[in-house]
């Protein structure tokens, strides 16, 4: 009986998460356009709905109505499957990220994470690595030189930055002695966040996250002036929409991951929520709100950076990855190890 209830709750959580993700991704696009406009002294979309609030739906509607064009030279099955992989990875990664503590519902304890896996962080790293395949395959299967170059760049970039990302995360894991995201969040507590404890690791992780999500200043795979559209040059209609959504979903995951790993997840800053004596459901709600708030800030940060910093050149990107980020993340590892030696022994 219990198993059915667990499955039921999980299905509900999945449904809620998927709906929320779709909506937030859609509005992320809207805010991207708004913020770019504000940064450039413009108004941004303001025609559809109040202040353009219905713009995302208009965008989606337009993309759906577009003709789906597949180039003659494309490898059709792979060309079709690549955007599916991209979207699948983007959505399934979120499964292990906790957005709140446990909650008592009708006598059942429900943790506010779809899957409380004890190797959650490994799962995230693994899935994001698979994400490279979507882009590489898309680039390769399109039968176009621009797509191919975009795909190759993308895989090189992701592999390079995954190294420093991995080492940065290692610092966090050392501290919390667990791969479970909830454990990591709990370890950080109300204020002892990893961002303050290991600032170098935080910065290398942040930069790597930008690179992994192909966001400016690291959006080399789709560098428009050089590669037309990069790996998705030959995509249109819904397939293009899939890549588009995946990019923003990835951003959402990266933000959530940064919040989880470095900003104490759903912990409310400087307040021990359980000692105030709120009603339990209210406390949980406050914690979820704290999590959402942090994620929203990170998302804003992503957009803000995009409209501030110009794109790196490809050699600069590689130099930065291997000659700066990688040594720095190693340095961070040493630093954390030293901390542990001093405080825990």
């Amino acid at each position: 009986m219990d198993i059915w209830i667990t499955i039921g709750f999980t299905l509900i959580k999945m449904l809620v998460i998927i709906v929320i993700m779709f909506l937030s991704v859609a509005y992320l696009v809207y805010f991207e356009r708004k913020i770019s406009a504000w940064v450039q002294d413009r108004l941004g979309p303001n025609r559809v709905g109040w202040k353009g609030a219905l713009q995302p739906f208009a965008d989606v509607f337009k993309l759906v109505l577009k003709e789906d064009i597949v180039p003659d030279a494309a490898n059709k099955p792979i060309h079709t499957i690549a955007p599916v992989i991209a979207l699948f990875i983007a959505f399934s990664t979120y499964a292990v990220i906790p957005f709140g503590p446990s909650l008592e519902i009708f006598g059942y304890t429900v943790s506010l994470v779809v899957a409380d896996v004890n190797i959650g962080i490994l799962y995230v790293l693994a899935l994001t690595s698979i994400g490279v395949y979507a882009i590489t395959l898309a680039g390769w299967s399109s039968g176009s030189k621009y797509s191919l170059l975009g795909g190759i760049r993308s895989s090189a970039q992701m592999i390079s930055y995954e190294v420093s990302m991995g080492f940065s995360v290692a610092g966090v894991l050392l501290l919390s002695e667990s791969l479970r995201p909830i454990a990591i969040v709990e370890t950080q507590g109300a204020w002892l966040w990893n961002a303050w404890i290991q600032p170098i690791g935080f910065i290398t992780f942040l930069v790597s996250a930008f690179a992994e999500t192909n966001r400016l200043p690291f959006d080399l795979p789709e560098a428009e002036p050089e590669l037309v559209g990069g790996f998705h040059t030959e995509y249109s209609s819904l397939k293009f929409a899939a890549f588009f959504l995946a990019e923003y979903a990835n951003m959402l995951i990266a933000s959530a991951l940064i919040v989880t790993l470095y900003f104490g997840g759903y912990n409310i800053p400087f307040i021990d929520i359980n000692s105030i004596g709120l009603a339990p459901w209210l406390a949980v709600a406050a914690q979820v709100a704290a999590f959402v708030g942090k994620v929203v800030f990170m998302l804003f940060f992503f957009l803000w950076v995009r409209w501030t910093i110009p794109r790196f050149r490809y050699d600069q990107l590689m130099n930065l990855g291997w000659k700066v980020m990688f040594p720095l993340s190693l340095l961070n590892l040493l630093w954390v190890a030293a901390l542990i030696m001093i405080f825990k022994m």
């Binding site: 002294d41 950076v305 501030t308 910093i309």
Partner: peptide, 24 residues
């Protein structure tokens, strides 16, 4: 580079709240 990035971010943040000149 990081201080320069922060300067840049400060500038764009400031710009976001400036009045807009767009003619509708």
């Amino acid at each position: 580079y990081i201080p320069e990035i922060i300067k840049g971010l400060a500038l764009t943040l400031k710009t976001m709240f400036r009045p807009k000149y767009t003619m509708e």
